[in-house]
Amino acid sequence: MKTEGLWIWLALSTPLVAQMDFAGEWAPVQDEDNTGNPHIGEFIGIPMSEAGRLRSEAWSSSYMTLPEWQCRPHGAMYISRGPSQVRIWKEVDPVSRQITAWHAEWLRSIDNPYYMDGRAQPSELAPHTWGGFSTATYEGEMLKITTTHLKEDYYRRNGVPSSDRATLTQYWIRRGDYLTWVTIAYDPIYLTEPMIRSSEYRLALNQQIPPYPCTVVDEVDRPKGVVPHELPGTNPYLGEFGQKYDIPIEATGGGAASMYPELARKIIRQKNAATKK
């Protein structure tokens, strides 16, 4: 009789569908290309459109000194690529004990809720936000997150823009103490192809994300109304990255081809041929 009770208890306590738990403190594993400090003109690997290239080339780092941008967070298009740790937690319905939402927050982000309660999409007239509006579902042990209603933002923090028409699909894949965070950006304005990136995090049980207070100050004494930018064809810094690492502008300038190995092979062949001469 006791044994039967044990089996019933075990059966009831086993979830019908395995749901991976992602809650915890996670530290970025910076052995990829997500170290966060790109050069001006380092657009390699980003399938940006012509419009995206033009805006990126006009970008000036002084732009971030404008009062409106000093305290901006990193938006969803970039934040998981940055060097910041992340805290993930879940909302659980007290009656059903179903997970109704996941949340993620980095050092320099706002709360990013990922709803799992079946709610409808907001109107397109609703505000767009840095984190966007996200819903999530389990696909096996992965979590799939779909995000809309994003603000204009950046893919890389050297001025590569993302548009407010862009959407984002993300996957969380946990393997023990490691979390792979995959992002797939779709942007009809500034990308010509979906951009897929992945970042690694490692569980960090003793981690605390510090506060990130911010006060707007006059960082640069400039006349009111000035917006720093480079006029077309005049940005003197665009070539520095390529010169430093001896990479042709064909690659550093970005575009879909710069994502694929064929371009790297072509550049190597060209260099080898030049060396032989």
Binding site: Y63, R72, W130, H229
Partner: peptide, 30 residues
């Protein structure tokens, strides 16, 4: 973080906030 707070209803389009107007101001200025 430049989001929410004063909400702005534009002449056409969606409800906006500080960051949306700042992006627009930047575009017109450039």
């Amino acid at each position: 973080r430049t989001e929410g707070g004063t909400l702005i209803i534009p002449g056409h389009g969606r409800i906006s906030d500080t960051a949306d107007v700042a992006y627009y101001r930047d575009m017109v200025t450039i």
